[in-house]
Nucleic acid binder design. Sequence first.
DNA 1: GTTTTTGCAAACCATTTGCAGGGTC
DNA 2: GACCCTGCAAATGGTTTGCAAAAAC
Lengths: 145, 145
Amino acid sequence: MVDAAPMISALRDAGYRRTTARGEVARLVAAQDGHFVAADLLSEAARGNTRIGRATVFRTLEAMSDAGVVERIDLPTGDHAYVACEPRHHHHVVCASCGAGQDIDDAGLRRVVRDVARRTGYRVDDHRLELFGSCPRCQAREAAG
Amino acid sequence: MVDAAPMISALRDAGYRRTTARGEVARLVAAQDGHFVAADLLSEAARGNTRIGRATVFRTLEAMSDAGVVERIDLPTGDHAYVACEPRHHHHVVCASCGAGQDIDDAGLRRVVRDVARRTGYRVDDHRLELFGSCPRCQAREAAG
DNA sequence: GTTTTTGCAAACCATTTGCAGGGTC
DNA sequence: GACCCTGCAAATGGTTTGCAAAAAC
């Protein structure tokens, strides 16, 4: 759960114009608790009295991704999802039960990457790490339930 | 580039029946050099005189993924691709130019995962790491060209 | 003989695109 | 006023599904 305002600023900084549609999408994204898919935003927009086109949602998510305020992740199921995040390089832990996500920093991964490059001879330009599991709250729920 | 026979055995071990279609798909997969998408197999099957249905290719890839002989990866572009691989836990480095891939073992990632779990309070059940860059051959080509 | 698997075509569904009207700078 | 953005509806494209025939066990 984050705030919508910084997202909108980030969009502006990235050269995108300020529009009502983008503000709405930002608000919806900010209200998401964990990861979400485009369809979530669409249905929530429809449930509220917001009228936003499918295309606009996708285009805005792309813009936000470009601006670094959301990131597209790939779930173990193969589905694409998005998470709101801080605009810097990082990775995610995602809870498989409730979808709550949390950013994590480099966490020693840099060494892993360098090590792999040395051993394989590849030059590594980009990497992505996704972690899946159970968040503290869901662990407690599991233990209780 | 791997051998088709072990794939077929692995499928059998996983409880799938031995069929000509699966043998063909295994042969096609084995002939792939790096990552590939379902459509690659389809078109190559068509180019040869092999008649295999779209659905069968997808179903066989799913079976192979289940048996652990191929893995579905997500390219930075967001596209889904597959790579032939050994049936144990590991990760991949993929060349962005030519698509050549290579398995890598844990490479110290275990420590990273444990560290993240400790810091976030999440229980981490699963992780995926994808590395993208340039393979030795393409680096040489870059330097030469 | 029973259970799987195949192939085809149709169905699906997320995402993209063309385009005309409207909003932003 | 020039350029960007929106919404709609239609197109796209990868993937899945229903089903009857064929193959594997």
